[in-house]
Amino acid sequence: MDLPLLSALFAAFALLLYVVLDGFDLGVGALLLLPSDERVRDRMVDSVVPIWDGNETWLIMAGVTLLAAFPVAYGILLPAFYLPLIVMLLALGLRGVSFEFRMQTERMRRAWDIAFSLGSIVAALMQGLIVGGLIQGIAVDGEHFGGSVFDVFRPFCLLVSLAVLSGYVVLGAGWLHLKGTAALRAFAERILHTAVPAYLGLASVSTAAATLVQPQMLAAWSAHMTLLSAIALLFLLLAITLWRAIGGRSDGRPLFLGLALFVLGIAGLGVAVFPDIVPYRLSLWDAASSSQSQVFVLLGAAIVTPIVLSYSAFAYYVFRGKTPEQGWEI
Protein backbone atom coordinates (compact mmCIF):
# COMPACT_ATOMS: atom_id res chain seq x y z
CA MET A 1 0.00 0.00 0.00
CA ASP A 2 1.18 3.52 -0.69
CA LEU A 3 1.39 4.80 2.86
CA PRO A 4 2.71 8.31 2.15
CA LEU A 5 -0.14 8.84 -0.29
CA LEU A 6 -2.70 7.78 2.30
CA SER A 7 -1.12 10.03 4.92
CA ALA A 8 -1.15 12.90 2.48
CA LEU A 9 -4.82 12.26 1.80
CA PHE A 10 -5.52 12.32 5.51
CA ALA A 11 -3.57 15.57 5.93
CA ALA A 12 -5.47 17.06 3.00
CA PHE A 13 -8.74 15.92 4.53
CA ALA A 14 -7.86 17.59 7.84
CA LEU A 15 -6.80 20.75 6.05
CA LEU A 16 -9.98 20.80 3.99
CA LEU A 17 -12.15 20.43 7.08
CA TYR A 18 -10.15 23.14 8.75
CA VAL A 19 -10.58 25.55 5.89
CA VAL A 20 -14.29 25.07 5.47
CA LEU A 21 -15.14 24.92 9.18
CA ASP A 22 -12.84 27.54 10.62
CA GLY A 23 -13.34 29.46 7.39
CA PHE A 24 -16.89 30.33 8.27
CA ASP A 25 -16.16 31.20 11.87
CA LEU A 26 -13.19 33.35 10.87
CA GLY A 27 -15.52 34.98 8.37
CA VAL A 28 -18.05 35.69 11.10
CA GLY A 29 -15.22 37.17 13.13
CA ALA A 30 -14.08 39.36 10.26
CA LEU A 31 -17.60 40.75 9.93
CA LEU A 32 -17.90 41.55 13.62
CA LEU A 33 -16.39 44.96 13.00
CA LEU A 34 -19.40 46.10 10.99
CA PRO A 35 -22.66 45.95 12.98
CA SER A 36 -23.00 48.80 15.43
CA ASP A 37 -25.80 47.11 17.34
CA GLU A 38 -24.28 45.17 20.19
CA ARG A 39 -27.10 42.65 20.24
CA VAL A 40 -26.40 41.74 16.64
CA ARG A 41 -22.75 41.22 17.50
CA ASP A 42 -23.71 39.06 20.47
CA ARG A 43 -25.83 36.86 18.19
CA MET A 44 -22.97 36.58 15.72
CA VAL A 45 -20.57 35.38 18.38
CA ASP A 46 -23.21 33.13 19.92
CA SER A 47 -23.71 31.41 16.61
CA VAL A 48 -20.13 30.10 16.58
CA VAL A 49 -19.15 29.94 20.24
CA PRO A 50 -20.20 26.34 20.94
CA ILE A 51 -18.32 24.89 17.98
CA TRP A 52 -15.30 27.04 17.13
CA ASP A 53 -12.84 25.06 19.23
CA GLY A 54 -13.60 21.85 17.39
CA ASN A 55 -13.23 23.67 14.07
CA GLU A 56 -9.83 24.98 14.96
CA THR A 57 -8.65 21.58 16.14
CA TRP A 58 -8.52 20.51 12.49
CA LEU A 59 -5.69 22.98 12.01
CA ILE A 60 -3.70 21.23 14.71
CA MET A 61 -4.57 17.90 13.15
CA ALA A 62 -3.22 19.00 9.77
CA GLY A 63 -0.05 20.43 11.28
CA VAL A 64 0.63 17.41 13.42
CA THR A 65 -0.02 14.98 10.58
CA LEU A 66 2.65 16.83 8.66
CA LEU A 67 5.02 16.47 11.62
CA ALA A 68 4.34 12.77 12.00
CA ALA A 69 4.19 11.65 8.40
CA PHE A 70 6.33 14.21 6.55
CA PRO A 71 8.84 15.49 9.10
CA VAL A 72 11.25 16.67 6.42
CA ALA A 73 8.59 18.86 4.81
CA TYR A 74 7.51 20.07 8.25
CA GLY A 75 11.05 21.19 8.98
CA ILE A 76 11.24 23.08 5.68
CA LEU A 77 7.81 24.66 5.55
CA LEU A 78 7.49 25.93 9.09
CA PRO A 79 10.66 28.03 9.08
CA ALA A 80 9.80 29.21 5.54
CA PHE A 81 6.47 30.52 6.78
CA TYR A 82 7.80 31.52 10.18
CA LEU A 83 6.45 35.06 10.16
CA PRO A 84 2.96 34.48 8.76
CA LEU A 85 2.57 31.46 11.04
CA ILE A 86 3.57 33.29 14.20
CA VAL A 87 1.35 36.23 13.31
CA MET A 88 -1.49 33.84 12.50
CA LEU A 89 -1.05 32.02 15.82
CA LEU A 90 -1.05 35.26 17.77
CA ALA A 91 -4.10 36.45 15.86
CA LEU A 92 -5.95 33.20 16.45
CA GLY A 93 -4.99 33.47 20.09
CA LEU A 94 -6.37 36.96 20.43
CA ARG A 95 -9.55 35.87 18.75
CA GLY A 96 -9.85 32.68 20.79
CA VAL A 97 -9.65 34.36 24.16
CA SER A 98 -12.05 37.07 23.02
CA PHE A 99 -14.80 34.45 22.92
CA GLU A 100 -14.46 34.07 26.69
CA PHE A 101 -13.40 37.53 27.68
CA ARG A 102 -15.97 39.59 25.78
CA MET A 103 -18.73 38.01 27.86
CA GLN A 104 -17.07 39.10 31.07
CA THR A 105 -17.36 42.78 30.50
CA GLU A 106 -20.05 45.21 29.46
CA ARG A 107 -17.95 48.33 29.20
CA MET A 108 -15.03 46.87 27.29
CA ARG A 109 -16.96 44.48 25.11
CA ARG A 110 -16.51 46.61 22.04
CA ALA A 111 -12.74 46.53 22.54
CA TRP A 112 -12.73 42.73 22.71
CA ASP A 113 -14.96 42.61 19.65
CA ILE A 114 -12.43 44.66 17.77
CA ALA A 115 -9.67 42.32 18.92
CA PHE A 116 -11.84 39.41 17.84
CA SER A 117 -12.41 40.89 14.44
CA LEU A 118 -8.85 41.98 13.78
CA GLY A 119 -7.65 38.59 14.99
CA SER A 120 -9.93 36.86 12.50
CA ILE A 121 -8.97 39.13 9.63
CA VAL A 122 -5.25 38.87 10.26
CA ALA A 123 -5.42 35.09 10.68
CA ALA A 124 -7.23 34.78 7.36
CA LEU A 125 -4.74 37.03 5.61
CA MET A 126 -1.80 35.07 6.97
CA GLN A 127 -3.33 31.79 5.80
CA GLY A 128 -3.69 33.35 2.38
CA LEU A 129 -0.06 34.46 2.41
CA ILE A 130 0.99 30.90 3.15
CA VAL A 131 -1.11 29.51 0.30
CA GLY A 132 0.34 32.15 -1.99
CA GLY A 133 3.84 31.32 -0.83
CA LEU A 134 3.27 27.64 -1.53
CA ILE A 135 2.06 28.37 -5.03
CA GLN A 136 4.87 30.76 -5.83
CA GLY A 137 7.44 28.30 -4.46
CA ILE A 138 10.04 28.40 -1.70
CA ALA A 139 13.81 28.06 -1.65
CA VAL A 140 15.08 24.72 -0.43
CA ASP A 141 18.64 23.79 0.41
CA GLY A 142 19.04 20.04 0.84
CA GLU A 143 16.58 19.16 3.59
CA HIS A 144 16.38 22.69 4.95
CA PHE A 145 14.72 25.93 4.13
CA GLY A 146 17.21 27.95 2.12
CA GLY A 147 15.48 31.29 1.62
CA SER A 148 14.68 34.26 3.79
CA VAL A 149 11.73 34.42 6.17
CA PHE A 150 10.66 37.60 4.40
CA ASP A 151 10.27 35.85 1.02
CA VAL A 152 6.59 35.31 1.60
CA PHE A 153 5.71 39.00 1.53
CA ARG A 154 5.39 39.27 -2.24
CA PRO A 155 2.64 40.92 -4.30
CA PHE A 156 1.26 37.63 -5.55
CA CYS A 157 0.99 36.28 -2.01
CA LEU A 158 -0.78 39.42 -0.87
CA LEU A 159 -3.28 38.98 -3.69
CA VAL A 160 -3.98 35.41 -2.63
CA SER A 161 -4.40 36.49 0.96
CA LEU A 162 -7.12 38.93 -0.07
CA ALA A 163 -8.82 36.19 -2.05
CA VAL A 164 -8.80 33.90 0.99
CA LEU A 165 -10.15 36.63 3.24
CA SER A 166 -12.99 37.41 0.84
CA GLY A 167 -13.75 33.69 0.58
CA TYR A 168 -13.96 33.38 4.35
CA VAL A 169 -16.26 36.39 4.45
CA VAL A 170 -18.55 34.63 1.97
CA LEU A 171 -18.58 31.57 4.20
CA GLY A 172 -19.15 33.66 7.33
CA ALA A 173 -22.01 35.55 5.78
CA GLY A 174 -23.42 32.26 4.48
CA TRP A 175 -23.34 30.90 8.03
CA LEU A 176 -25.15 33.97 9.37
CA HIS A 177 -27.68 33.61 6.56
CA LEU A 178 -28.34 30.15 7.98
CA LYS A 179 -28.25 30.90 11.69
CA GLY A 180 -29.45 34.50 11.94
CA THR A 181 -32.94 35.80 12.49
CA ALA A 182 -34.38 39.10 11.20
CA ALA A 183 -31.73 41.82 11.47
CA LEU A 184 -28.81 39.45 11.36
CA ARG A 185 -30.07 37.64 8.31
CA ALA A 186 -30.62 40.92 6.50
CA PHE A 187 -27.07 41.89 7.36
CA ALA A 188 -25.79 38.60 5.97
CA GLU A 189 -27.63 39.20 2.71
CA ARG A 190 -26.13 42.66 2.32
CA ILE A 191 -22.64 41.30 2.89
CA LEU A 192 -23.09 38.43 0.47
CA HIS A 193 -24.13 40.81 -2.27
CA THR A 194 -20.70 42.44 -2.23
CA ALA A 195 -18.55 39.56 -0.97
CA VAL A 196 -19.50 37.02 -3.63
CA PRO A 197 -18.42 39.13 -6.64
CA ALA A 198 -15.30 40.25 -4.75
CA TYR A 199 -14.37 36.67 -4.04
CA LEU A 200 -15.03 35.55 -7.59
CA GLY A 201 -12.94 38.39 -8.96
CA LEU A 202 -10.01 37.91 -6.60
CA ALA A 203 -10.00 34.15 -7.07
CA SER A 204 -9.92 34.49 -10.86
CA VAL A 205 -7.18 37.10 -10.83
CA SER A 206 -5.12 34.97 -8.44
CA THR A 207 -5.52 31.93 -10.63
CA ALA A 208 -4.37 33.86 -13.66
CA ALA A 209 -1.50 35.49 -11.78
CA ALA A 210 -0.31 32.13 -10.51
CA THR A 211 0.57 31.08 -14.04
CA LEU A 212 2.62 34.25 -14.43
CA VAL A 213 4.65 34.03 -11.24
CA GLN A 214 5.25 30.29 -11.39
CA PRO A 215 5.93 28.58 -14.72
CA GLN A 216 5.15 25.22 -13.14
CA MET A 217 1.56 26.39 -12.75
CA LEU A 218 1.36 26.98 -16.47
CA ALA A 219 2.78 23.52 -16.99
CA ALA A 220 0.16 22.07 -14.64
CA TRP A 221 -2.58 23.76 -16.68
CA SER A 222 -1.38 22.27 -19.91
CA ALA A 223 -0.96 18.86 -18.33
CA HIS A 224 -4.41 18.77 -16.75
CA MET A 225 -6.26 21.06 -19.12
CA THR A 226 -9.65 19.35 -19.08
CA LEU A 227 -9.74 18.64 -15.36
CA LEU A 228 -8.67 22.11 -14.29
CA SER A 229 -10.97 23.78 -16.80
CA ALA A 230 -13.86 21.70 -15.56
CA ILE A 231 -13.12 22.75 -12.00
CA ALA A 232 -12.90 26.39 -13.01
CA LEU A 233 -16.17 26.21 -14.93
CA LEU A 234 -17.96 24.52 -12.08
CA PHE A 235 -16.60 27.17 -9.73
CA LEU A 236 -18.10 29.89 -11.90
CA LEU A 237 -21.45 28.13 -12.11
CA LEU A 238 -21.65 27.59 -8.39
CA ALA A 239 -20.69 31.18 -7.69
CA ILE A 240 -23.57 32.36 -9.89
CA THR A 241 -25.98 29.97 -8.20
CA LEU A 242 -24.76 31.29 -4.87
CA TRP A 243 -25.40 34.83 -5.97
CA ARG A 244 -28.96 33.93 -6.87
CA ALA A 245 -29.57 32.09 -3.61
CA ILE A 246 -28.94 35.16 -1.49
CA GLY A 247 -32.07 36.08 0.41
CA GLY A 248 -33.85 33.06 -0.99
CA ARG A 249 -36.18 30.76 0.86
CA SER A 250 -33.43 28.32 1.78
CA ASP A 251 -31.44 29.59 4.75
CA GLY A 252 -28.61 27.18 4.19
CA ARG A 253 -28.05 27.26 0.44
CA PRO A 254 -25.53 30.14 0.33
CA LEU A 255 -23.42 28.50 3.00
CA PHE A 256 -23.36 25.11 1.33
CA LEU A 257 -22.58 26.61 -2.06
CA GLY A 258 -19.80 28.62 -0.45
CA LEU A 259 -18.38 25.46 1.07
CA ALA A 260 -18.54 23.77 -2.31
CA LEU A 261 -16.56 26.66 -3.79
CA PHE A 262 -13.83 26.10 -1.28
CA VAL A 263 -13.75 22.38 -1.89
CA LEU A 264 -13.34 23.07 -5.61
CA GLY A 265 -10.60 25.60 -5.03
CA ILE A 266 -8.61 23.22 -2.87
CA ALA A 267 -9.18 20.37 -5.30
CA GLY A 268 -7.86 22.53 -8.12
CA LEU A 269 -4.79 23.43 -6.12
CA GLY A 270 -4.27 19.79 -5.21
CA VAL A 271 -4.41 18.73 -8.85
CA ALA A 272 -1.90 21.42 -9.79
CA VAL A 273 0.78 20.62 -7.21
CA PHE A 274 0.30 16.87 -6.79
CA PRO A 275 2.41 14.91 -5.93
CA ASP A 276 4.61 17.50 -4.25
CA ILE A 277 4.39 18.33 -0.58
CA VAL A 278 6.86 21.16 -0.83
CA PRO A 279 5.66 22.39 -4.23
CA TYR A 280 8.08 21.83 -7.10
CA ARG A 281 10.81 20.68 -4.68
CA LEU A 282 9.93 17.65 -2.68
CA SER A 283 7.46 14.92 -3.40
CA LEU A 284 5.38 13.17 -0.75
CA TRP A 285 7.54 10.10 -0.98
CA ASP A 286 10.79 11.99 -0.50
CA ALA A 287 9.53 13.76 2.60
CA ALA A 288 7.86 10.81 4.25
CA SER A 289 8.84 9.33 7.59
CA SER A 290 9.46 5.61 7.87
CA SER A 291 6.53 3.29 7.38
CA GLN A 292 6.22 2.43 11.09
CA SER A 293 5.32 6.03 11.81
CA GLN A 294 2.91 6.21 8.87
CA VAL A 295 1.14 3.04 9.91
CA PHE A 296 0.72 4.28 13.46
CA VAL A 297 -0.89 7.54 12.40
CA LEU A 298 -3.07 5.96 9.72
CA LEU A 299 -4.31 3.19 11.96
CA GLY A 300 -5.12 5.66 14.70
CA ALA A 301 -6.83 7.96 12.23
CA ALA A 302 -8.83 5.15 10.64
CA ILE A 303 -10.18 4.04 14.00
CA VAL A 304 -10.71 7.36 15.72
CA THR A 305 -11.74 9.76 12.93
CA PRO A 306 -15.23 8.26 12.46
CA ILE A 307 -15.86 8.65 16.19
CA VAL A 308 -14.58 12.20 16.13
CA LEU A 309 -16.77 13.06 13.17
CA SER A 310 -19.84 11.60 14.79
CA TYR A 311 -19.62 13.41 18.08
CA SER A 312 -18.60 16.61 16.33
CA ALA A 313 -21.72 16.29 14.22
CA PHE A 314 -23.67 15.69 17.40
CA ALA A 315 -22.31 18.94 18.86
CA TYR A 316 -23.52 20.79 15.76
CA TYR A 317 -26.85 19.02 16.08
CA VAL A 318 -27.30 20.10 19.72
CA PHE A 319 -26.97 23.74 18.69
CA ARG A 320 -28.96 23.37 15.46
CA GLY A 321 -31.47 25.86 14.14
CA LYS A 322 -31.48 29.60 14.53
CA THR A 323 -29.28 31.07 17.21
CA PRO A 324 -31.73 32.04 19.97
CA GLU A 325 -32.33 35.76 20.46
CA GLN A 326 -31.57 35.53 24.15
CA GLY A 327 -28.35 33.59 23.68
CA TRP A 328 -27.42 30.15 24.95
CA GLU A 329 -28.32 29.83 28.58
CA ILE A 330 -26.27 27.71 30.79
Partner: peptide, 17 residues
Protein backbone atom coordinates in the same frame (compact mmCIF):
# COMPACT_ATOMS: atom_id res chain seq x y z
CA UNK B 1 10.92 18.36 14.22
CA UNK B 2 12.63 16.54 11.37
CA UNK B 3 14.48 14.24 13.72
CA UNK B 4 11.83 13.56 16.37
CA UNK B 5 8.79 13.82 14.09
CA UNK B 6 8.63 10.08 13.33
CA UNK B 7 8.49 9.30 17.07
CA UNK B 8 6.62 12.13 18.79
CA UNK B 9 4.55 13.22 15.77
CA UNK B 10 2.32 10.13 15.76
CA UNK B 11 1.85 10.40 19.51
CA UNK B 12 0.77 14.02 19.27
CA UNK B 13 -1.44 13.12 16.29
CA UNK B 14 -3.16 10.54 18.47
CA UNK B 15 -3.43 13.15 21.20
CA UNK B 16 -5.28 15.43 18.81
CA UNK B 17 -7.57 12.63 17.71
Amino acid sequence: GQMAGPAIGPMIALEVL
